[in-house]
C-alpha cells in the first residue's frame, strides 16, 4: 500500500506540472488570438479607403 501511496504522490506531482503547463499554453493561445484580432482590425482599416476609391 505504501508503494501505491508513494506512486500516487509522484503521479500527482507530475499531473500538477502537466496541468500547469496546459494552463500556461492556453494563456499564450488566448493572447495570440487577441493579437490576431488586432491585426485583422488593422487590415480592415487599411482596406476601407481602398474600397472607397476603387469599388463604387
Amino acid at each position: 500500500w505504501d508503494k501505491l501511496l508513494i506512486g500516487n504522490n509522484q503521479k500527482i506531482i507530475e499531473l500538477n506540472d502537466a496541468v500547469q503547463k496546459v494552463k500556461n499554453d492556453q494563456q499564450v493561445l488566448d493572447q495570440e488570438l487577441e493579437f490576431i484580432a488586432t491585426q485583422h482590425k488593422e487590415l480592415e482599416e487599411s482596406l476601407a479607403p481602398l474600397e472607397k476609391e476603387f469599388v463604387n
Binding site: 485583422h40 487590415l43 480592415e44 482596406l47 481602398l50 474600397e51 476603387f54 469599388v55
Partner: peptide
C-alpha cells in the same frame, strides 16, 4: 477580406 482585396484588384 481576401474577397474584398480581390475586388479592389479587379477594379484597379
Amino acid at each position: 477580406m481576401g474577397h474584398r482585396i480581390l475586388r479592389i484588384v479587379v477594379k484597379q
